[in-house]
C-alpha cells in the first residue's frame, strides 16, 4: 500500500504543469499560431505574397469588427455576418431535415430487404459521387427560385451518406438480436422498432454526421451562385476585392462546422454503449 502511495505521489510531482500532455499540446499550438501570424504579418508587409494580400493584424481587426457587429442590415449586399450565418444555417437545417426524413426510413426499408438493397444500390452508387453543384442548373430550371434551389442542393447532397449508412447498419444488425426477437415471437414491426433501429442507431448517427458535414461544405459553394448567406458574403467580398473579409468568413465557417460536428460526435457517444454485449 505505502509503496503504491509513494509511487502515485511521485507521479503527481512529475506531472507538473509542463509534463501534462494537454498543457504541452496547448503550448505547442499557441507557439505555432504565433509563428504563423508573425510569418503572415511580416510576409504581407514585405509584399512576399500576392499583391494586395492583407496583413494578419488587419484581418484580426476585421474579425473583431464583424463578430462584435453581427446583426446589421443595409440591404442584401451589406448584411451583418450574423444574419448571413443564420440564413445559411436555416437553408442547411431545412434541406438537411428533408433529406434525413427521407433517408432514414428509406434506408431502414432498403436495409431490411436483401432484394431491395441489391436492386437500388446502383442508384446510390451512381449518384453518391456526383458533386451536388452539378444539380444546380437542374434545380434552378425546375424550381425557378434560388431559395428553393439552395435547399434542394443541400437535400440532394446530404441524403446519400445517411441513406447508405442506415441501410448498412440495418442490414448488419447482429443475427443474435434478431434470433432473440424471433424466439420471443416478436412481430415484424416490433422487431424493427425495438431491435433493428436501436441496433443500427450508431450507424444511422454517423451517417447523419457525415451528411451534416457535407451540407455545410456544399451550402457555401451553392450560395456563391444564389445570393445571401455566407457563401454569397464571400462572393460579394470577392467582387469588392476586399480579401480580409473573405478570410474572416472562412474562419467563421470553420468554427460553425466544428460546432455542428461536435454535436453529432456527442450523439454518437450517447448511443455507442461501450462494447457489444
Amino acid at each position: 500500500m505505502t509503496i503504491i502511495k509513494e509511487k502515485v505521489a511521485k507521479n503527481n510531482q512529475n506531472n507538473g504543469l509542463l509534463e501534462n500532455e494537454n498543457v504541452k499540446a496547448l503550448l505547442l499550438f499557441l507557439f505555432s499560431l504565433g509563428l504563423f501570424l508573425a510569418f503572415w504579418e511580416i510576409g504581407a508587409n514585405l509584399k512576399l505574397f500576392a499583391k494586395g494580400m492583407p496583413t494578419a493584424s488587419l484581418t484580426l481587426k476585421e474579425l473583431w469588427w464583424w463578430t462584435t457587429n453581427p446583426f446589421f442590415n443595409n440591404g442584401p449586399n451589406d448584411l451583418g455576418i450574423g444574419w448571413n450565418l443564420l440564413i445559411s444555417l436555416r437553408r442547411v437545417a431545412i434541406g438537411y431535415t428533408i433529406a434525413s426524413i427521407i433517408a432514414v426510413p428509406l434506408g431502414v426499408l432498403i436495409g431490411i430487404s436483401k432484394v431491395a438493397s441489391k436492386a437500388f444500390n446502383p442508384y446510390f452508387q451512381l449518384l453518391k459521387p456526383v458533386s451536388p453543384l452539378a444539380w444546380l442548373p437542374l434545380g434552378l430550371y425546375m424550381f425557378r427560385d434560388s431559395e428553393i434551389t439552395g435547399i434542394f442542393i443541400i437535400a440532394i447532397a446530404s441524403i446519400w451518406p445517411t441513406l447508405i449508412n442506415t441501410a448498412f447498419g440495418v442490414a448488419n444488425v447482429s443475427p443474435d438480436y434478431l434470433d432473440v426477437a424471433k424466439t420471443l415471437g416478436a412481430s415484424r414491426l416490433r422487431t424493427i422498432f425495438k431491435v433493428i433501429i436501436p441496433a443500427a442507431l450508431p450507424n444511422i448517427i454517423s451517417g447523419l454526421r457525415i451528411s451534416m458535414g457535407i451540407s455545410w461544405l456544399v451550402i457555401v459553394a451553392a450560395e456563391m451562385l444564389l445570393g445571401t448567406g455566407l457563401g454569397y458574403f464571400i462572393w460579394n467580398e470577392w467582387n469588392n476585392l476586399y480579401i480580409p473579409n473573405i478570410i474572416v468568413a472562412i474562419f467563421i465557417i470553420g468554427i460553425v462546422g466544428i460546432v455542428l460536428d461536435q454535436i453529432f460526435a456527442y450523439l454518437e457517444k450517447l448511443v455507442s454503449f461501450g462494447s457489444k454485449a
Binding site: D176, Y177, V180, T183, L184, G185, P198, K276, A277
Partner: peptide, 29 residues
Amino acid sequence: GPDRGMVFQNYALMPWMSVEDNIRFAVET
C-alpha cells in the same frame, strides 16, 4: 415461439437496454 425460452451462449443481450429493460422487453413481447 415463446413456448420455448432460449439462453444463448454469447448472452445476446441488447446493449442499449438496461438489465431490467432486457427482461421487460421479453415480457412485453
